[in-house]
Design a protein around this nucleic acid. Structure first.
Lengths: 147, 147
DNA sequence: ATAAATCGTAATAATTGAAGTTACATGAAA
DNA sequence: TTTCATGTAACTTCAATTATTACGATTTAT
């Protein structure tokens, strides 16, 4: 299975946008992320629907962040992306008649549910502002080292 | 992404085998699980390499459990299956030069690592015997209800 | 021996969902 | 009116699991 990297992508894009003044075009974002402008538009379009970013057409157009970095969490972004499946492992059949399989499903589901709850809770406690601060720290460190 | 259901599959197979005396053929297991005998052999072959089951060829051949149900954990089975990727979500690029992306990866990796640790810990505390007992309970309940 | 049952395994196709691409319409600014 | 940029539909590519086909190897029964 090819894994879903849209959350990673939008975070990357949003932080680049936060780092600069003004807007960024799909083309510029696509270059940052080594991908295609259409892919950027598709994903950013979901964020626009959620009111997190705005887009403008025409020359001087592009994407801008409209939300406050401190209030947008990874969990919110996960939801905005449509809550894609988190696990690459799962039950063979979600609603089996077989009692054996029901036992198997129950055990696996319980474990996955707990892991998912933990992950989403972690996501809920990380904001874009946190990531921007982490980036700033790494940036300062790199400058210090190169001196 | 199509998710990996081999852990679910082998658990289903092992419990069916535990439930009966003697061995089961790949064909019989495949029918239980609504799949193909070759798929069963492929997966069970990994368990055989790990010493958990034995196979015999020829008429009266098939698969038998050789391990003690109380000592085999879901985690062990996950390992035997080659520790397939747990998450369907991931970073776009695992070793980026971009500092922004490094921050994003660090945040996501930390959350995923914790969720994975929790999941594997859960898996480590569930044995085949536990699942067999859960099945027996469900079985008794169904018989009671149908009376 | 011979036949039948069963595993072992290679090679290939089907399936699924994300990602990438092409094409073109729409709208805004100079 | 030209140019730049988004909005979207349609299609292709890609990656990984699962399914299927085919055939060889081994064991039991007669």
């Amino acid at each position: 299975m090819k894994h879903d990297s849209r959350l990673s992508s939008v975070l990357h894009a949003l932080l680049h946008m936060a780092e600069r003044e003004g807007s960024m075009t799909s083309e510029a974002l696509a270059q940052c992320m080594n991908t295609n402008p259409v892919v950027v538009r598709r994903t950013m379009g979901l964020l626009r629907q959620a009111g997190l970013v705005a887009s403008a057409r025409g020359p001087a157009g592009g994407w801008t962040i409209t939300a406050d970095l401190g209030t947008v969490t990874l969990r919110q972004l996960h939801e905005v992306l449509g809550e894609p499946a988190i696990f690459a492992i799962g039950n063979r059949n979600e609603t089996p008649d077989c009692l054996v399989e029901q036992s198997v499903n129950a055990a696996l589901d319980a474990a996955f549910a707990d892991a998912e709850a933990l992950l989403l809770d972690r996501f809920a406690h990380v904001t874009l502002a946190d990531l921007a601060a982490d980036f700033a720290r790494r940036h300062a460190e790199r400058r210090a080292r190169s001196r």
